[in-house]
């Protein structure tokens, strides 16, 4: 037995007190970093197009920025998947309970989601001011909660709901595959896609399952939010009972 004495230097870095805060601190750079990546390509392309300004751009009558809005939604779905598949096992293996992790992930993703909604609105504003000069009111190809690209408040609301829905759906899909494996996980996709579709329809056409909602924008948002809250409750429940596979997962302490 060689019991040498150990001297432990004081730990100078302040650590957050609760598990939710600690996990949120660890996840914040991941969520924010991913948000930067998902906006990088559209923003760079827009800046290049603005500077280059090809002749055909002046003849464009539809909003180009509206197509960019798919990027944060899809990327948010991917973030939800990655959080469960990669970061949940790592965090639980390192002392964070599943419930705290779920809360922390939501806290960490919130700034990225809110910033994305803001960038979406700013993008429309920039497009109206700089990019498109031939038309005063760039057309929208698809139906949205907003009917013109200068309805910035509605743009922000729609993007917030759409991104949160995608994030939640990604999380649920990932939980399904992690918990139930490939085949049963794939079957469960239907249960995730259904509410996601309802939210998308409520935000866009205003028809849900063939029925006109006969609601204004606030009513349609309320329907969408109700579905999102339901999905969030399922996320919390499903994650709380999630077992980790094996004891030797890819993380070194795991």
């Amino acid at each position: 037995m060689t019991a040498t004495s150990t001297h432990t230097a004081p730990i100078l870095r302040r650590r957050p007190s609760g598990p939710t805060r600690r996990a949120a601190r660890a996840l914040l750079p991941i969520a924010s970093g991913q948000a930067i990546w998902w906006w990088l390509a559209p923003v760079v392309l827009s800046v290049v197009a603005t500077g280059w300004r090809p002749a055909w751009l002046d003849e464009v009558t539809v909003s180009l920025w509206q197509f960019v809005l798919y990027a944060p939604v899809v990327a948010s779905f991917a973030l939800g998947v990655v959080l469960v598949a990669v970061h949940l096992p790592l965090h639980v293996a390192n002392g964070i309970d599943r419930r705290s992790f779920t809360r922390a992930a939501a806290v960490a993703a919130a700034p990225a989601i809110m910033a994305s909604a803001a960038v979406a609105a700013i993008g429309f504003a920039v497009e109206r001011a700089v990019l498109v000069t031939a038309v005063a009111d760039p057309a929208l190809v698809e139906r949205h909660l907003f009917t013109a690209t200068d309805q910035y408040g509605l743009v922000v609301v729609e993007m917030l709901v759409a991104i949160v829905t995608a994030w939640t759906a990604g999380w649920l899909v990932s939980v399904g595959y992690y918990r139930f494996g490939w085949w049963r996980g794939t079957l469960l996709l239907v249960l995730v896609l259904l509410p996601t579709g309802v939210v998308q329809l409520a935000l866009s056409t205003g028809r849900v399952l063939g029925t006109d909602l006969v609601l204004g924008a606030s009513g349609r948002v309320a329907v969408a939010m109700a579905v999102v809250v339901l999905m969030a409750v399922v996320v919390d429940r499903a994650t709380r009972g999630l077992e980790l596979r094996g004891t030797s997962t890819w993380q070194v302490t795991g």
Partner: peptide, 27 residues
Amino acid sequence: CLVGDGGGDSDTSRVGARIDLLTTLRP
């Protein structure tokens, strides 16, 4: 804390980054 046998065949993290992570996560 449960310590496995290392795993990590596809773990692209640097060792130092993992120390930083655990400093944040574990009081």
